[in-house]
Amino acid sequence: MQEYERKQLLERVEREGATVGADIPETITIQGEEIDLRTFVFEIKRRETVPQGERDRVEQAKRNLRRERIERLEAIEEGDITREEGEELAGSIIGIDRALNALESLGPTNLEREQQAQKAQDRKRWMSFLKKALGKDDDGASRRGR
Rank of each mutant, 00 (worst) to 15 (best):
D122H: 06
E112K: 13
E5W: 09
R143T: 06
M1D: 10
S105Y: 04
Q115F: 00
Q115M: 07
A133G: 08
S128Q: 14
T49R: 14
E71G: 06
R143I: 06
F40R: 05
Q31L: 07
S105C: 06
G95Q: 02
R15L: 10
D56C: 09
R72C: 09
R38L: 12
Q118F: 12
E14C: 09
G86K: 08
R72G: 00
K136W: 14
A102I: 00
E59I: 06
E48V: 07
Q2H: 03
I70K: 06
T19G: 04
Q118V: 05
A99D: 04
A18W: 04
N101C: 01
G140L: 13
V50T: 15
D36A: 15
A141P: 00
A117G: 01
K7I: 09
T27Y: 07
L10P: 00
R72W: 03
V41E: 06
I70S: 03
G32T: 02
I70V: 11
R46F: 13
E71S: 09
D137S: 15
I96Y: 02
A133S: 11
L89R: 10
L134K: 13
K124D: 09
K131A: 14
T109H: 08
E48D: 10
V41G: 04
K131L: 11
Q60G: 09
I94P: 00
K136Q: 14
R15V: 03
I76W: 01
T19H: 02
S128M: 13
A18D: 06
I35M: 08
Q118T: 08
V20C: 11
A61S: 08
E26H: 02
E43N: 15
D138Y: 12
K132C: 06
G17P: 01
